[in-house]
Amino acid sequence: MADHNASKVLDLKGLPCPMPVVKISQEIGTVKVGEVIEVHTTDPGSLSDFPAWAKTTGNEVLETRQGDGIIQIFVKRLK
């Protein structure tokens, strides 16, 4: 599967709410517009929280993958 050419991997395993969205909001500014961050999380709430965060902040969730209790989320910085 394509890895969306992520320029950064963010390991948020074991961190519960609200840390995943706090971390992505702090990290999104560290990549350039158009670049992708690959997030690894174990928080099931992230499945709905990341799209909600992206919609509000004007960024994009490209893909979400689940497996082995770990959720992979690909976030693209749009602005």
Binding site: C17, P18, V21, V22, S25, T56, T57
Partner: peptide, 12 residues
């Protein structure tokens, strides 16, 4: 505090 930090993370 969770709502406040979450909202700040959402850009509010």
């Amino acid at each position: 505090m969770i709502i406040a930090t979450g909202a700040a993370a959402m850009g509010m």
